[in-house]
């Protein structure tokens, strides 16, 4: 079953060093621009119900504002050491005509 691409932001919304919160259907997601490339990952911490994009972005990691669990913004993978044990989803990203589209990773 093919998964629809969904427009989630204007390309200019997503800047280096600043998370951009958006929605993919019912899922909260965040977009990050890292070394020029845009990435999209799930934005709800698996430990407690809070948006990661309200946390602290450092390099290629986003740190949860509640308990400092860290996730790789390029892959959604959790970094060991915080109270979260599970990864957040990573999404496919496509940039076209000044807009950012994502879809659930195949």
């Amino acid at each position: 079953m093919s998964v629809e691409w969904v427009r989630v932001a204007a390309e200019s919304d997503v800047v280096e060093g600043e998370p951009f919160a958006s929605e993919y259907g019912e899922n909260a997601i965040a977009l990050y621009r890292y070394e020029g490339t845009i990435f999209a990952i799930g934005d709800i911490c698996p430990h407690e119900d809070v948006r990661l994009s309200e946390g602290w972005l450092e390099g290629d990691r986003i740190e949860c504002p509640l308990h400092q669990s860290c996730f790789e913004i390029r892959t959604g993978k959790v970094i060991e050491g915080g109270p979260a044990y599970e990864d957040v989803a990573a999404y496919d990203v496509r940039v076209e005509d000044g807009a950012v589209f994502v879809r659930a990773a195949g």
């Binding site: 430990h47 407690e48 509640l66 308990h67 400092q68 669990s69 050491g81 915080g82 109270p83």
Partner: peptide, 14 residues
């Protein structure tokens, strides 16, 4: 909401 591991270590605080 300070959060501790089951070993008693402080893991994070809001």
């Amino acid at each position: 909401h300070w959060s501790y591991s089951l070993k008693g270590d402080l893991m994070g605080l809001p």
